[in-house]
Amino acid sequence: MRRERTYSDPRIINLLNERFVNAAVNINSLQRQDDDEGRCFRLIALQGRFKLSFEDALDQVAQTDHGECHQGQFVATIDGELLGSRHTADPDELLDMLTTALSNWDNRTTQREVSQIGDFNRDERYIWQYPEDGLVLHLGCTDLPRSVDTRPDGVYRTAHNQDFVWITREEMLSIVPDGVQKGDRFSLPEAIHRRLVRHHLLDIVRGETPAWSKEVPQDVALELHVTDVDSDHVHMTLHGGGKLQENGTWCTQPPQRSIYRRGQMCCLIEERGFEPHILGHVAFDRVQERFTRFDVLAVGTRWGGTTFNVRCDDTDAAPLGIAMTIANTDAFSRIPPHSGPRSYFQA
């Protein structure tokens, strides 16, 4: 939602493209990374988000366990000298910050000359290996139309989110058994099944949410049916469904219109669920050893929410849709899935 609201304004697009070098970064890893990139980010965020002086921030950059959230928008020099910061979805507020930061850039004390920055060794806990010859899917998630709609007008009615699904080459090649014939039916390999269910059959429409617990994938069936086989291709449909349900104690941010803020009044959600029907159309090229189609759709009823997916005022059962298709190969389609690499590949 923030993407469209804040960064679709032509004034923002033009100013950022002309005057800045822009980075969209994930703090789930970055604020914890024990490496030069993590230290650089913390130096900037500790000044911008937590209002520390440059010197005090510098003293704390080695700490990787700062518990507070480092989200925000920051402008800085390469040396970490803060020029502006804000945490806003409002384009006008962001524009004000950027304008002020450009004035501060003129008066900066660092990065006066063009310089070089070398490479660094990333904290190995956060290294993702893009599956170059594997299967990468682009996932879209949205609320589907409601017959009874009590949501207030605004961004939540059109909210949608995206993610990426990564399947390594070795895993991909294990999906279609050798010698399959028309009419054959078989399950997806367990690792792929668990990954799809735990990490991707999630309600992320309004924001991120944790993976389902490890016990949950067995409640969803996924089976491939071979519909046609020729010399090159195996054509299949994917069928599945089930009921995902989990109890928890998710303390959420109260709705915007509430007089309370988080910590003043706990807005507690104790359950989340999704009951999807799943259908897919899949084609595998046995000569090229790659999928030429992998279109999968999950449609069903969701309910409840978790701490960060902003369902506090929308926990009643309502329809949700999740679609996956083969991703492009541009830079924006190489973003890792929403997870950590270890938990993702060992789902």
């Binding site: 923030r2 070098v21 980075a23 980010f41 402008v75 800085a76 020099t77 930061a101 899935p337």
Partner: peptide, 16 residues
């Protein structure tokens, strides 16, 4: 040029 960072929980270009 100055560095602009858009830093979010979750990747801003992926699932955020």
């Amino acid at each position: 040029k100055p560095l602009f960072l858009w830093a979010m929980n979750g990747h801003p270009i992926g699932c955020v």
